[in-house]
Simulated scan of single mutants.
Amino acid sequence: MSTADGPKIAILGGGIGGLATAAFLRDQGFESEVYEQAAALTEVGAGLVIAPNAARLLRRLGVLDRFVERAVRMEIGWEFRRWENGAVLSAENLEEGCIRLYGEHTYAAHRADLLDALRSAVPVRSIHLGKRCVAVEFEDDRAVLRFEDGETVRPDVLIGADGVHSRVRGAVVGPTHARESGICAYRALVPAEKAPEFARRRAQTLWIGPDHHLVHYPVSGEEYVNLVAFAPAGVDSVESWTATATVRELLDEFAGWDPRLVELIRAAETPGRWALLDREPLDRWNRGNATLLGDAAHPMFPFFAQGAAQAIEDAAALALCLGAAPDAPVRALGRYEELRRPRTARLQEVSHGRSHVNHLPDGPEQRARDRAYAESDPLRTNGWIYAYDPEVALS
């Protein structure tokens, strides 16, 4: 199929999901146009984890080598530690286990480095910056995009990769409601030279305690340590990547925890802070020639570190579905939703459940959890996550 004969595809959102979609579509022979409201392609939010299910797709796309120039390959993963003294509850060797079981490594990275790798697979001419969408409407079953600058776009296929506050989602499924989860998240970067030695190891370390937990791992070529913490939400918490807190506030949340962890927090740059809102899985993703992808379709708590990975999986699956039915894009969107919605709903649910388990107060239930962690093999138990391949699922 020549690109000239393909459908006119518009992607709203130039983040990880949007650029991954454009890249995988190009790999299938489709051209697309990416519309991003920001004036430059940048990513806030600091760190993320790329597990084997996403790494194999980056390799297939031809951008893994570029990504690993700055990504940090994890040697130890899911190292769970007790809040008050850092006692190791469980640890797993990812360096050997991921390759043996799933054929790829696990990496930690700054979001900007993943975005850069994906952008390298998308022609510059396809990315339109400073395009703020003010309305998504439907003329019969065909989506129409209206932009602040007066441009109107009527694509053959519209892909809403416009994030947790998606305008496309509102047009496709109507208003959706989120509940307060009672959990607030903080994120910060710590310059490696200021970080304690234990935090510079190639490990994804989770400290768990009553009502709180904190995760840290090195990113950006090991120049920084990424830190993300979870605590009870205050009344001034908002769902935003740009709201900030102070180091003092973060220290207060973890007062009395292991002194090494307090030292790490003390060295942090200005923390971001946002509320985690609780959203049920959607009943549908599609309307006419429009569909949803990534956080627009399935925002999830970050406790399985699969948000970016699921957006990349979505992108690969959507491109495969369109490639299999280039002359019937609406049917292809239906196959995409059928393929992806059950899997992402399951991940939303298990991520939600982890919020309770990680925050148990000290006592019998907490001790039973700690014993279970010590006896568990999460790398193998979660094979349904890490072994997934959209090509296999579609076959």
Rank of each mutant, 00 (worst) to 15 (best):
R343G: 13
W257Y: 15
R380I: 00
G353H: 11
Q366I: 04
F303A: 00
T270K: 09
P361A: 10
I385G: 00
R341D: 15
R331Q: 10
L277C: 09
F254T: 00
R343A: 12
L277I: 06
G334H: 12
E349A: 15
I265D: 03
P299W: 04
R367V: 13
D258H: 11
E391P: 08
V262G: 01
Y388D: 08
L264Y: 03
Y388P: 02
R331L: 11
D362W: 08
A316V: 02
W274V: 08
A372K: 07
A372W: 10
A267I: 04
R380N: 02
R340T: 05
W274E: 06
A368N: 03
V330M: 06
V262I: 14
E365L: 14
A296C: 12
D252F: 02
T381E: 15
G294T: 05
W274Q: 10
T344P: 01
G363L: 11
D295M: 01
A297N: 03
A296T: 09
F301C: 01
F301L: 12
G353C: 04
F304I: 06
T291W: 12
D389C: 03
D389H: 14
D362E: 13
L360Y: 07
A316S: 10
L339E: 06
P329D: 14
A317L: 02
L339M: 11
Y386L: 05
E280W: 01
R284A: 12
P281D: 14
E338M: 10
A332P: 04
L322M: 14
L282G: 01
P259C: 06
G323A: 07
L261W: 09
R331T: 09
P378R: 00
R279W: 08
A255E: 14
Y388G: 01
R371E: 15
R340M: 08
G256H: 12
I385E: 00
Q310V: 06
L360K: 12
P281Y: 14
A332M: 07
R369F: 13
A374V: 05
W384Y: 11
D283N: 15
E349F: 15
L293W: 02
A345R: 00
A255F: 09
A315P: 04
R287T: 05
L322I: 04
S376N: 05
Q366T: 10
F301I: 00
A372Q: 13
W285K: 01
T291C: 13
F301H: 09
T270G: 02
R335E: 03
P390D: 03
D258C: 09
F301Y: 14
